[in-house]
Design a protein around this nucleic acid. Structure first.
Length: 250
DNA sequence: AAGCCGTGCAACCGCGGATCG
DNA sequence: CCGATCCGCGGTTGCACGGCT
C-alpha cells in the first residue's frame, strides 16, 4: 500500500527558511517543547511541512549545536566511527553530541571521503593500519574528553534542562536576527549562510548539555574505545572495519 | 566583465521502524 | 492483530558562492 506524501497540504512552502520563520518555530518550541511535529505547522501558522520543521529544529535551531570547522579530534572520531558503524550518521552523531547527523554526513561526503581516498592512495595497507591504530588513540582521548564534559554539564545543571535549553535557543535566534538586521542589505541567501553560523566559541558558551551520550550504558564500541589496557585484543574489530565492505571508504 | 565549474551546505525525498487506535 | 499515522534516518538534490579562465 502506498504511503501518501507527508505534505499533501496545498501551498506548502519549500526552500530556505527565513529568520521570521525561525523565530516563529523557536518561540513555539520554547512554549510547547519539541515533538508532535505534525501539529507544529498548524499551530504556528507556518506554511511548512512537519518534517521540514523538525529538520530545521534538529539541524539548525536546536540549542547547543556546534557549527563551523571540525576539529582534528572530531574528524578522526568520525573516520573511525564511520569505519566501525558505516553510514549510520545518527549513531555517529551521538558520539559527537554537539554535531548534527546532517552536519557529519555533509562533512563526510564533502571532505573526508576525498581526503581518505587521497590518503589511501598514498599508503600501503600496513601503513594504513598502523595509522588507524594511532588515530584510534586520539579518537579515544577525544571521546573521553567529550564524555567528561558531558558529565560535568549534567551534574552542574538542574533537572530542568529544557528551560535553559529553550532560553539559550531564544538567545541564539536573537543573535541570528541581530546579525540579520545588521546585514539586511545583503541578499537573503547570503545572510542565510553567514549569520546563522555561530562560532565554535559562541556555541561553547551556548552548550546546554543536550546530549544523548550521558547516561547511556556503554556499548561494545565505547568499551573498546575506553579500553586502554589491551587495545591489541580488539585488533579483530579494526580488521573488521577495514574489511567490512566499506566501498565508500576503500 | 562574464561565463563556467567545483565545492559546501541547507533542505527535500522516500523508506522503514515505532506507535497508536 | 492490523491498518493508519508519525517520526527518524540516510541518500540525494538544488542553490549560492568563490575561484578560475
Amino acid at each position: 500500500m502506498g504511503r501518501p506524501p507527508c505534505c499533501q497540504t496545498i501551498s506548502v512552502k519549500k526552500g530556505p527558511w527565513t529568520p521570521e520563520e525561525d523565530i516563529i518555530l523557536v518561540s513555539y518550541i520554547h512554549q510547547n517543547g519539541p515533538g508532535n511535529w505534525r501539529s507544529v505547522p498548524h499551530n504556528t501558522g507556518l506554511s511548512r511541512c512537519s518534517k521540514s520543521c523538525r529538520l530545521r529544529w534538529t539541524n539548525y535551531l536546536r540549542p547547543g549545536i556546534k557549527r563551523g570547522q571540525f576539529s582534528d579530534h572530531e574528524e578522526k572520531m568520525i573516520i573511525h566511527l564511520q569505519a566501525l558503524l558505516g553510514n549510520r550518521w545518527a549513531a555517529i552523531a551521538s558520539y559527537l553530541p554537539r554535531r548534527t547527523d546532517n552536519d557529519i554526513k555533509n562533512y563526510w561526503n564533502t571532505h573526508l571521503k576525498k581526503k581518505l581516498k587521497v590518503y589511501e592512495n598514498g599508503l600501503s595497507k600496513g601503513q594504513w593500519e598502523r595509522r588507524v591504530q594511532t588515530d584510534i588513540e586520539t579518537a579515544k582521548q577525544a571521546l573521553k574528553e567529550a564524555l567528561s564534559l558531558t558529565k560535568q554539564t549534567h551534574t552542574s545543571e538542574s533537572n530542568t534542562p529544557s528551560c535553559s535549553s529553550y532560553a539559550l535557543s531564544a538567545e541564539n535566534i536573537a543573535r541570528l536576527l541581530k546579525n540579520w538586521t545588521k546585514n539586511s542589505t545583503r541578499s537573503n541567501s547570503e545572510s542565510r549562510s553567514t549569520q546563522n553560523c555561530v562560532s565554535v566559541e559562541e556555541s561553547s558558551k551556548l552548550e546546554t548539555g543536550v546530549e544523548s551520550v550521558g547516561g547511556v550504558p556503554l556499548t561494545l564500541l565505547e568499551t573498546w574505545l575506553f579500553d586502554d589496557v589491551a587495545p591489541q585484543n580488539h585488533q579483530h574489530l579494526i580488521n573488521f572495519s577495514l574489511q567490512d565492505g566499506h566501498q565508500g571508504l576503500f
